[in-house]
Design a protein around this nucleic acid. Structure first.
Length: 448
RNA sequence: GACCCUAUCGUCCAGCGGUUAGGACACUGCCCUUUCACGGCGGUAACCUGGGUUCGAAUCCCAGUAGGGUCGCCA
């Protein structure tokens, strides 16, 4: 029988990075085994539910490329969905729950207590055969020792998580439950529930949690906790996915950059690591950079443009070829554009930020004759290309008996307002002779 | 308080009885270079502690310690 796995998030309005990894591991296992990946929305908590919150989850999974075989297709139409084990929203499965609750009552596995319905839990330790942690013997805690039974239907008639989760997994024919380790202790309850229904529980695999760098639990407000951070930021989904694969799983061959197809091929549940992992944004960024190197100019430009728009740099009045040529000079130094998007403004406006320290260092009196000479020579250049400009600067510095930096620095500061930036000769070619000459002239005048 | 999981460089992983304990990120030295990057070549840095088992333990067992999780009419 082919495995059937599921990702069952609660629509809270954001997709947690840990949740994304849980989805990833389920997806990987399904794809590795040729099984089925089911998406089920656990929206029993009416208070924090909305179509938008469901959309956040669907869009997050789609962004990562984690396609599901069964489940909702949109948050708007909760009736529509792929698969024949629906509905895939718990809020629409009331009838199923009622039937199963009646079954437990009939079997005397549950009883009423203060308006609620409680499940008769055994007192013996439960063996949880976990694919990651091994056989776990779960004994009762001291509080459970007093009363091992637990509520499965609230006094307001709403069934609780433990119950609906088990019923859904049972009805949907889930064979492997791959979920966060925070559920490990509760699994004894789930196993007991399955047995009460007269069904063997699925196989369980509890994966370790993702922690903050300081070791604390990663929660909503922590840096990098929400997938939106990456979707809205300068990140490639394949890089995020790759990083997540490396957190708690390893290809065993010391490689870091792995195509997802290869991960699918190698992935298996028993190889998942047992310990929690701390989130390392630096490594994710490095990995992102590795992927960025291989991406098409179109995708790269789209990311850059989004950052420029955020920073208020208008590019729309420039020809597409110009914008694209300008962004190309940031290809190998995207980090700079990211950290300081305004530093790229010199391409799109004469009113760009100017670093006073750079001006003080570059526009010394000795720079005046150099700039004047450069203006003349650049004006005479037959072709205003990076190569031609470079071939002008090098000999000229020799002729003037100064280091190349003596020409380069004033030029760079005059053109960009900064000491750092893309390759000077290339950015000059992109900027074009007219803009270059006018900015150099302005700088030369300022020195005098 | 009880129960459960975990424990190799700062971080993520490799190691599964005998290794100079390996790779990556980060940090750092040198080279390349018009700046900043990229890249290339190096460097610093780890087996939590204490008992066992064994000729021999990072590797197996136990305890302690530490970190995380769970014990809800939250999911």
């Amino acid at each position: 029988m082919k495995p059937r796995v599921r990702f069952a998030p609660s629509p809270t309005g954001y997709l947690h990075i840990g949740g994304a990894r849980t989805a990833l591991f389920n997806w990987l296992y399904a794809r590795h085994t040729g099984g089925t990946f089911v998406l089920r929305i656990e929206d029993t908590d009416q208070a924090r539910n909305s179509r938008e919150a469901v959309e956040v989850i669907l869009q997050g999974l789609r962004w990562l490329g984690l396609d599901w075989d069964e489940g909702p297709v949109s948050g708007d139409d909760m009736r529509a969905g792929r698969g024949d084990h629906g509905p895939y929203f718990q809020s629409q499965r009331g009838e199923i729950y009622r039937r199963r609750i009646a079954e437990l009552r009939d079997k005397d596995a549950a009883y009423e207590h203060e308006g609620a319905l409680k499940f008769r839990m055994g007192r013996e330790p439960v063996i949880i055969p976990d694919l990651v942690a091994g056989d776990v013997e779960r004994k009762l805690t001291d509080r459970e020792e007093i009363d091992p039974d637990f509520v499965i239907v609230r006094s307001d008639g709403q069934p609780v998580f433990h119950l609906v989760n088990v019923i859904d997994d049972l009805e949907m024919g889930i064979t492997h439950v791959i979920r966060g380790e925070d559920h490990l202790s509760n699994t004894s309850k789930h196993i007991a529930l399955f047995r009460a229904f007269g069904v063997e529980p699925p196989r369980y695999a509890h994966i370790p949690l993702i922690l903050n760098p300081d070791g604390s639990k990663m929660s909503k407000r922590d840096v990098g906790a929400s997938l939106a951070t990456y979707m809205d930021g300068f990140f490639l989904p394949e890089a995020v996915l790759n990083y997540l694969c490396l957190l708690g799983w390893s290809p065993k061959d010391d490689r870091q950059v792995l195509p997802i197809a290869e991960v699918i091929e190698k992935f298996d549940v028993p190889q998942i690591l047992r310990g929690n992992a701390k989130f390392d944004m630096d490594k994710l960024k490095w990995l992102n950079g590795e992927y960025l190197k291989t991406v098409t100019a179109e995708r790269f430009n789209a990311l850059c443009l989004r950052e420029l728009v955020k920073a208020g740099v208008a590019t729309e009045c420039y020809p597409a070829e110009y914008v694209s040529a300008a962004l190309a000079t940031y290809r190998e130094k995207y980090q700079q554009l990211l950290d300081q998007p305004l530093s790229a403004k010199f391409y799109f406006s004469d009113d760009f930020p100017i670093d006073p320290a750079a001006v003080a260092e570059a526009f010394v009196p000795a720079a005046r004759p150099i700039l004047d000479r450069l203006i003349i020579e650049l004006g005479k250049l037959a072709e205003f290309t990076a190569d031609a400009i470079q071939n002008l600067y090098k000999p000229l510095s020799k002729e003037l008996g100064v280091k190349a930096g003596a020409l380069v620095l004033p030029t760079r500061v005059a053109l960009t307002g900064s000491k750092v930036g893309p390759s000077l000769y290339h950015l000059m070619e992109v900027l074009g002779r007219e803009r270059v000459l006018s900015r150099l002239a302005k700088a030369a005048t300022a020195i005098a």
